[in-house]
Simulated scan of single mutants.
Amino acid sequence: MSDLEDISQHVHDKISFIQQMLDLSVVELPQPKIKKLGQEFFSLEKLLEELERCVDQQKKQLDHLKALEEYFQKALEDVQHIKDNIPPHIPRKKDLDRGKETVRNLNEATDGRPVQADNIKQMSKTIIKEMEFITMPEFESIPQYMKGRVSYDQLNAAVDSINIAVTAKYKILHQSVKTLNNHARKLHQRFKDQQTKETKGQYFIVEDDIREFTQTKVDKRFQGILNMLRHCQRLRELRGGGLIRYMLL
């Protein structure tokens, strides 16, 4: 902008000078003065051409800035839309919150006795497998007869419930029995009894685990959701001993 102002001022000065010379034209000018006037006109013409170029450049810069403003405004609107429409199953600070919740639950399971540092360290080394959320392409690949009226968010809410149950179950299994209260010891023993050779090294839950650790209703609708998760290769069934074990893949 300063270049444009400088040229504009220069043009203004030139015009003022030429105007002064024309005011003096009432008298006969000597030849050198006439030549000087011609040079000033020629110089003014060059300045006007340069001024036009600067104005064109400024117009282009202004158009570019307007386009950038529109682009960033649209980007801001898109970001706000994404922020306002984040699916509920998207992980946020869940892992950290769950870790704190698990330690609190385990403290409660040990009759209020604080979990020993060694136990916490041992639990932190043990990574409990969780089921990955269903992607939109996977959801769309599920046959309509299998989906029924279950929405994308409802399906992933079920995935979250299963992960909560798996985490709670295996936190108890990884806890020393001596530190557990009576109820937690019964759960620990039940979990052990449900294990088989086929489940060794695998993570699985049964329907009672869902009821124990979540508020999810284990009904016909939930059974349909389990079928959808099998279709998406998130789990498989293992039957035996009167139980259906849902193995995480």
Rank of each mutant, 00 (worst) to 15 (best):
M1E: 09
M1Q: 14
D3K: 12
I7H: 01
S8R: 05
S8I: 03
S8T: 12
H10T: 06
H12A: 12
H12S: 11
D13H: 01
D13T: 07
D13M: 05
K14G: 04
S16F: 09
S16E: 14
F17K: 04
I18M: 09
Q19D: 07
M21L: 06
M21R: 01
D23W: 02
L24G: 04
S25G: 06
S25V: 09
V26N: 09
E28H: 02
L29A: 12
Q31H: 15
Q31P: 08
P32N: 11
K33G: 04
K36Q: 10
L37Q: 06
E40I: 01
F42I: 14
F42C: 13
F42N: 15
S43Q: 15
L44W: 05
L44S: 02
E45W: 13
L48P: 01
L51A: 09
V55Y: 13
Q58S: 15
K59S: 15
K60F: 12
Q61S: 15
H64Y: 11
K66L: 05
A67T: 11
L68V: 04
E69R: 05
E69M: 06
Y71C: 09
F72S: 06
Q73M: 06
K74C: 10
L76M: 08
E77W: 11
E77S: 12
V79L: 15
V79T: 13
V79Y: 12
I82D: 07
D84S: 14
N85R: 05
I90M: 10
I90E: 02
R92A: 01
R92S: 14
K93F: 11
K94W: 05
L96P: 02
L96Y: 08
L96S: 11
D97T: 07
G99I: 01
T102P: 03
T102W: 04
R104D: 14
R104H: 15
N105S: 10
A109V: 05
T110K: 03
D111K: 07
D111F: 13
R113T: 08
P114S: 06
Q116M: 09
N119E: 15
K121L: 15
M123W: 14
S124D: 09
I128A: 03
K129A: 11
M131R: 01
M136Y: 13
E140A: 08
M146I: 13
K147N: 08
G148S: 03
Y152K: 05
Y152Q: 02
Y152G: 03
A157W: 10
S161I: 01
I162W: 00
I162M: 06
V166G: 00
V166A: 00
T167K: 08
A168W: 02
A168P: 00
K169Q: 04
K171W: 14
I172A: 03
S176V: 12
S176L: 13
N181L: 09
N182T: 14
H183A: 09
R190V: 04
F191C: 07
F191Y: 12
D193A: 15
T196H: 01
T196W: 02
T196R: 04
E198F: 02
T199W: 06
K200I: 05
V206H: 03
V206L: 10
E212V: 04
F213I: 06
F213A: 00
T214E: 07
T216K: 10
K217N: 08
R221F: 12
F222D: 02
G224F: 07
G224L: 10
I225M: 10
L229G: 00
R230M: 14
R234D: 01
R236F: 03
G240L: 03
L243D: 08
I244F: 05
I244D: 06
R245P: 01
M247C: 00
L248H: 00
L249F: 00
